[in-house]
């Protein structure tokens, strides 16, 4: 990204090593390297194409949703509803597929559902001035409730078609969802760093008042990031449902934690204005590697839940200590 490149240039004067350590993405990259080295020695199955591609597939949904969440957080917002949107979009998409048989229509319905919830989130924030934490906590519950109401709590089968292709197919052994994630990451990277609107997102998160006075449409920018985030959560829901060949109304429960963790691990500041798409992808990769480690080492899944929390606190803590020293 433009700013990243410039700051990198300025930092080069202080030594490349120092610059690397100073980048927030560096801590997550180091953790990934450490974990990869450890797992390579701990389990002979880890460093096989099959396992690694599996890690990639499992991480891709978190990464895709995290792309949207990253833009929201960079603009100084927060979207807690993404897990519920995954479930609601999956259910609605499956329901449309079953009712009409139109696969493309089902895809659009899923994305549209996500965009709609995103627009509601954005509207609650920008028009009614409800803190996004609270607004999306509300829609988290509402969206989940609607998914349960529609299905009566019973999963809808959802196999084949676009969802099946995105969620379960492979191209030359590479999962489609992983390819889709990488393509989207490149697109979002260009969008965030190279377009006017992308740059406005950073400005709005950095100092909303200054951004408004500089002529930026602050409300419009906030609406857009929430809609994009909702849409990507909708896409995540379709992929997950396609993978399981079933749209469970409980799908995506708790995903908001993984998604927000990936964004924060990737070096995005909750105070807005700072963050990068490649950092977020790294963050999602670390989360996926951690899950993989617990499976390979045969550790309790309950400990995995604890470890997720520890990793977030550690990553942000290290950064806080480092920044505290600089001040």
């Amino acid at each position: 990204m433009a700013m990243g490149a410039e700051m990198g240039a300025a930092a080069r004067a202080r030594g490349l090593g120092g610059a690397l350590l100073r980048r927030r993405e560096a801590s997550v990259a180091l953790m990934i390297v450490a974990l990869v080295v450890f797992l390579t020695f701990a389990n002979e199955f880890f460093l096989t194409p099959r396992n690694l591609l599996n890690v990639g597939r499992q991480g891709s949904v978190v990464a895709i949703v995290a792309l949207g969440q990253a833009l929201v957080i960079i603009s100084r917002g927060l979207d807690l509803s993404v897990g519920s949107v995954i479930g609601l979009s999956a259910v609605i998409s499956a329901w449309v597929a079953r009712a009409t048989g139109g696969q493309e229509l089902a895809l659009l319905a899923g994305l549209g559902t996500g965009a709609l919830v995103g627009a509601v989130n954005g509207g609650l924030f920008t028009r009614l001035n409800i803190n996004p934490f609270i607004a999306t906590l509300g829609t988290l519950s509402i969206a989940r409730g609607i998914a349960l109401l529609i299905t009566g709590g019973i999963p809808i089968s959802y196999s084949g078609g676009v969802a099946g292709f995105l969620g379960a197919e492979r191209i030359y052994t590479v999962p489609v969802s992983l390819i889709l994630m990488l393509v989207l990451a490149v697109l979002f990277h260009v969008f965030a760093s190279r377009t006017r609107i992308g740059r406005n997102i950073y400005a709005v998160g950095d100092n909303p008042t200054a951004a408004r006075l500089a002529g930026i449409d602050v409300e419009g920018t906030r609406m857009l990031v929430f809609i994009l985030c909702g849409m990507l959560a909708g896409l995540g829901g379709i992929i997950l449902a396609g993978n399981l060949a079933s749209a469970n109304p409980d799908l995506g429960r708790g995903y908001e934690l993984d998604v927000i963790a990936a964004v924060i691990l990737g070096g995005t500041a909750l105070s807005g204005g700072r963050g990068s798409i490649h950092g977020v992808v790294l963050g999602a990769l670390l989360m996926a590697l951690l899950s993989n480690a617990f499976v390979l080492l045969g550790l309790s899944a309950h400990w995995q839940v604890v470890s997720k929390g520890l990793v977030i606190i550690m990553a942000v803590g290290i950064d806080g200590i480092r920044r505290g020293r600089e001040d």
């Binding site: 433009a2 006017r196 406005n200 500041a269």
Partner: peptide
């Protein structure tokens, strides 16, 4: 409080209000 974008570079601060004029094919 109302002027600078504190985590942006000097360049990013200067150019933020003129990006529309230097956008070609969607990209700055």
């Amino acid at each position: 409080t109302r002027g600078i974008l504190p985590t942006h570079s000097v360049r990013g601060n200067i150019s933020i209000s003129c990006l529309a004029g230097i956008t070609r094919a969607g990209l700055v």
